[in-house]
């Protein structure tokens, strides 16, 4: 069991900055996130898109913001537990015991939920019969590409994942790429490459088609796709891959007894504590009168929640307000004391 002062759920900008604020006041923390990298929505939804409303940063991309925040918390050696989702929460005397999907266990004085709009899960096919093939013939992510060698693969989607995998797998497999419209959201260079491969017969590109049905016993044998104008096509396929981006779900947090209003957690604005003592919520996941879903609001909320955590971590000490410009203790923690 890992013993720390605070566990932060969510490695988006708000969670990362909260770790910084905890570090400054001398509290230890670790961060859990369901994604495979830090950055949250900034990295997952808009890594290349510019953000214009970070104070004193006229323009930066989601990726730059994340990189800079990670740089900023470096002195505190915060450990990230990625690809893990928080599953269980238990109060043990004055402390919280938390278990993750990766069987990691934490013993902490308080918890900061910075979970954005929930954990990211792949969007699946809407077609009901797809469920029974999931994990055998239908995949939403690829762990081992060698299983596709010399097989027929039907890939659905128009973003970077769909395009990149279509290109990659076309080297060793027969690839059909199916997308609901002519335009693609993936990188232009990948779109060109896919079109070239289609011209050469290496990829079969079907646009303005969507999945209509799948058939097979234990494994998929064939699929039917339907054009916008109603025309159907059916072909044999061994595997179906769906890349429709990610959706966000609150998951197990919903069962923790927190006051939830419209998929957000209610907090006070003094220290962003929830209705449960020792559990705080900051960033997009929290709500209070006047809440703005801005990154800068998340920073403010994280700074106050960090101070709120102090009394649980160090009940016998008093937290003194200090500036990093002048505080010797803060500078020591930052490793910049001359």
């Amino acid at each position: 069991m890992i013993k720390k002062d605070v566990l932060i759920i969510g490695a988006g900008p708000t969670g990362i900055f909260c770790a910084h604020q905890l570090g400054i006041i001398g509290l230890s923390c670790e961060i859990v996130d369901n994604l495979d990298k830090a950055g949250g929505q900034c990295i997952e939804l808009y890594p290349d898109k510019p953000i214009y409303d970070i104070p004193a940063v006229p323009e930066c991309t989601g990726e730059e913001l994340t990189t800079n925040l990670l740089q900023q918390i470096k002195p505190f050696n915060v450990k990230f537990h990625l690809n893990e989702r928080v599953e269980e929460l238990k109060k043990v005397e004055t402390r919280w015991h938390v278990k993750t999907s990766g069987k990691q266990e934490f013993d902490v004085a308080s918890i900061v939920i910075a979970g954005g709009v929930g954990s990211f899960e792949p969007r699946k096919f809407a077609l009901k019969e797809c469920e029974k093939f999931e994990g055998s013939s239908i995949f939403y992510s690829i762990k081992d590409k060698t299983v596709f060698k010399d097989k027929t693969i039907s890939i659905f989607g128009g973003g970077d994942s769909a395009l990149d995998w279509a290109i990659e797998l076309s080297n060793t497999s027969k690839v059909n790429l199916i997308h609901r419209r002519d335009g693609f959201s993936g990188a232009e260079s990948s779109v060109q490459k896919v079109k070239e491969l289609n011209d050469k017969g290496k990829i079969n590109l079907y646009t303005k088609y969507q999945i209509d049905s799948v058939s097979g016993e234990n494994n998929i044998k064939s699929i039917k796709i339907k054009h916008d104008d109603g025309e159907n096509k059916e072909f044999k396929t061994d595997y179906v891959l769906g890349f429709f981006g990610l959706i966000m779900q609150l998951g197990p947090i919903l069962d923790w007894g927190l006051n939830i209003s419209k998929k957000s957690i209610e907090v006070n604005t003094e220290n962003f504590e929830t209705n449960i003592d020792g559990i705080f919520a900051i960033g997009d996941i929290c709500t209070y009168p006047g809440k703005l879903k801005l990154i800068l609001s998340g920073f403010h909320e994280g700074a106050l929640a960090a101070r709120g955590c102090f009394k649980y971590a160090k009940p016998d000490e008093k937290l003194r307000f200090e500036f990093t410009t002048t505080s010797k203790a803060a500078q020591e923690r930052l490793g910049v004391k001359k």
């Binding site: 969007r123 809407a126 989607g157 128009g158 973003g159 997308h179 609901r180 419209r181 335009g183 959201s185 916008d228 429709f244 981006g245 990610l246 959706i247």
Partner: peptide
């Protein structure tokens, strides 16, 4: 908008 609609549940024309 069209890019986001790719990720919607059952998008249509």
């Amino acid at each position: 908008e069209e890019d986001m609609l790719d990720m919607a549940f059952e998008p249509k024309q």
